[in-house]
Structure formats: structure tokens, C-alpha cells
């Protein structure tokens, strides 16, 4: 989450400066816009800590998984779900 204080300062600036601060539908002053947006993206975009799930060597295809199980004498772990786990939407 964006630190509340920083968001608060931008919002106060936005309100305080009225029309001169807000042009079009952009709630951040032009002079801050690039820096503000870049900082937000750095904060929110996926980090290594979000990718623990990708440290598993997931196998693709049930036939392949069962063949590997037989070949390597290993149990097969199957997780069934609805949606798109690769996107984090499931």
C-alpha cells in the first residue's frame, strides 16, 4: 500500500492548489507526475517475494506428470482450481 502520509500530502496539495494544480483528470501536479508514477510502480509491481510459487518446478500436462511419477517413483501432487493461478486470479 502507498504510505498514507505520502498519499495524504499529494491529496492536500491537490485540494489546496485547486484548479492550478489539477489539469484535466490528473490528480498529481505535472511537475511531480513522472516521479510519483514511477515510485508507485516500483512499490506495487511484483517482487521476488511475490514469486515463491514460481520456485516450484511445475509440470505441464497430466499425462506427463503421471509418466514422471512412474519413471521416478514419486507421488503426484495435483492442485485443481478454477481460474488462472499464473495470473494470481483464481
Amino acid at each position: 500500500m502507498l504510505p498514507k502520509i505520502r498519499l495524504g500530502l499529494v491529496a492536500i496539495g491537490w485540494l489546496a492548489c485547486g484548479g492550478s494544480f489539477v489539469l484535466g483528470a490528473t490528480p498529481v501536479a505535472d511537475s511531480f507526475l513522472v516521479k510519483w508514477t514511477d515510485r508507485r510502480i516500483a512499490q506495487v509491481r511484483p517482487k521476488a517475494a511475490d514469486k515463491g510459487f514460481e520456485n516450484v518446478g511445475w509440470v505441464s500436462g497430466l499425462r506427463h506428470a503421471f509418466d514422471l511419477g512412474r519413471e521416478h517413483k514419486r507421488p503426484i501432487f495435483v492442485f485443481t482450481y478454477s481460474g488462472h493461478i499464473d495470473q494470481g486470479r483464481c
Binding site: G52, F53, V56, W58, P75, F77, F79, Y81, I85
Partner: peptide, 25 residues
């Protein structure tokens, strides 16, 4: 599951070393 147990390093290690892991949508 993705952000929880399936991201836990103890579980990911176990899945990699002892199982054939697959997810099925």
C-alpha cells in the same frame, strides 16, 4: 493457495524434491 502454502519455501522445496507437482485449471 498461490500466495499462501504454495509460496512457502518449505513446501516448494518438498514439492520439488519428493513429488511431481502439477496444477490443473
Amino acid at each position: 493457495m498461490r500466495a499462501g502454502p504454495l509460496s512457502d519455501p518449505r513446501i516448494t522445496k518438498m514439492l520439488n524434491e519428493y513429488f511431481v507437482p502439477i496444477y490443473v485449471s
